[in-house]
C-alpha cells in the first residue's frame, strides 16, 4: 500500500500541476493571441523560444535553471537583490521551472484555436464597433474554448509527468519538491519495487484516462 509519504507526494504533485496550469492559462493566452495575430518578424523567434522545451532534454533545462537560479546566476542575483528567498529547493522554484517547461503544451493548442477563428468574425465585430478587447472576450475566447480545454488538460498532465527538471533543481524535499515522479525514482533506486509499482501503476492509469478523455472528447466535438 502507498504510505503517508507517497500520499504527500501525490498531493504536492496535484497542487503543482493545478497552479502551473492556472498560471500558464493566464500567461499563455496573451502570448498565444499575439503569436496567432502578429505579422511582426518577432513571431518566428518568440514561437521558437516557446517551443524549445519540446525538443530540449530536461537535463539541459534543469542544468541552466540550476545555474541561473543559483547565487551566481542572473535570476539568483535578482531574487537576492529583491530580498526574496533563493529559488532552488523551493516549491516556488519548481513552479517557475514547470511553467517554462510546460509552456508550449499550453500555448500551442490555444494559438491553433485562435488561428482557426480567422479574420472574418473579428472584422465583423469591428464593423459593429466592438473594441478589440470587447471582440477578444466576446468572440475570440468563446470560439477558442475547445483549444483552452485541450491546453489545460495537456498542460496539467504534462506537469504531472515532469521529472528531470525537478530532480535537478528540487533537492527532493518532502512537501516542497518531492513529486510523485521523484518518489517513484527513489523507490526504484532503493530497490523497493512494491512501493514503486503502486505509484508507477497509478501514474500509468491516470495518464491513460486523461488521454482517453481527451481523445474521446475530440472525436465527439471535432476539436482542434
Amino acid at each position: 500500500m502507498p504510505t503517508a509519504e507517497d500520499f504527500a507526494a501525490i498531493w504536492l504533485t496535484l497542487k503543482l500541476a493545478t497552479m502551473v496550469t492556472a498560471l500558464l492559462l493566464l500567461l499563455g493566452t496573451p502570448i498565444a493571441w499575439w503569436l496567432a495575430r502578429t505579422k511582426s518578424w518577432l513571431k518566428g523567434p518568440v514561437g521558437a523560444v516557446v517551443a524549445l522545451p519540446l525538443v530540449l532534454p530536461p537535463t539541459v533545462i534543469g542544468f541552466y535553471m540550476l545555474l541561473a537560479m543559483g547565487p551566481y546566476g542572473p535570476l539568483g542575483k535578482l531574487t537576492s537583490l529583491l530580498g526574496l528567498q533563493a529559488l532552488p529547493f523551493t516549491f516556488q522554484g519548481i513552479v517557475i521551472a514547470s511553467v517554462c517547461y510546460s509552456m508550449p503544451f499550453v500555448v500551442q493548442p490555444i494559438q491553433n484555436a485562435f488561428e482557426a477563428i480567422g479574420e472574418r468574425p473579428l472584422e465583423a465585430a469591428a464593423t459593429l464597433r466592438a473594441s478589440p478587447l470587447d471582440a477578444f472576450f466576446t468572440i475570440a475566447l468563446p470560439l477558442a474554448r475547445p483549444g483552452f480545454v485541450t491546453a489545460a488538460i495537456i498542460g496539467f498532465a504534462h506537469t504531472i509527468g515532469e521529472f528531470g527538471v525537478v530532480l535537478m533543481i528540487g533537492g527532493n524535499i518532502p512537501n516542497k519538491t518531492r513529486l510523485v515522479s521523484v518518489q517513484i525514482y527513489d523507490h526504484v533506486e532503493a530497490m523497493d519495487y512494491t512501493r514503486a509499482h503502486w505509484l508507477a501503476g497509478g501514474m500509468l492509469i491516470f495518464s491513460f484516462l486523461v488521454l482517453l478523455g481527451l481523445y474521446t472528447r475530440r472525436k465527439e466535438k471535432g476539436d482542434v
Binding site: L66, L167, N172
Partner: peptide
C-alpha cells in the same frame, strides 16, 4: 541529492 555527483553539483553551483 540522488547521488554523490548531484550533491557535488548542488554545492559547486553555490545553491
Amino acid at each position: 541529492a540522488e547521488n554523490i555527483t548531484q550533491s557535488y553539483q548542488f554545492v559547486a553551483s553555490g545553491n
